[in-house]
Amino acid sequence: MSGATADVLDRLFEVVTSRRNADPNISHSARLLSRGTAKVAQKFGEEAVECLIEAVMGNSSKLIGESADVLYHLIVLWVDAGVNPGEVWSELQRREGTSGIAEKAARPGPIANRSGG
Rank of each mutant, 00 (worst) to 15 (best):
A68F: 00
P85R: 04
K62G: 10
G65N: 07
R31M: 13
M57Y: 07
E91C: 05
H28W: 06
N84K: 14
L32W: 14
W89S: 07
N25K: 13
N25Y: 02
K62C: 10
K62A: 14
S60T: 08
S27P: 11
K39I: 10
R95G: 08
V40C: 07
Y72I: 00
A81L: 14
S90P: 04
Q93N: 10
S29K: 09
N25M: 13
A41M: 13
Q42I: 03
W89V: 08
R94C: 01
E47S: 04
V88R: 07
E66L: 01
S60Y: 05
G82L: 02
L32P: 06
D69S: 01
I53G: 15
R95E: 13
Q93I: 05
S61H: 08
N25P: 00
S34L: 03
A41H: 09
V83D: 06
E91W: 00
A38E: 14
L77I: 01
E47Q: 10
E47W: 02
W89A: 11
E66P: 06
E91S: 05
S29C: 15
M57L: 15
N84C: 12
H28P: 12
A81S: 10
S61N: 06
T37M: 15
M57C: 14
Q42G: 09
K39N: 03
E87P: 04
Q42N: 09
L52N: 12
S27I: 06
Q93S: 13
I53L: 15
G82A: 01
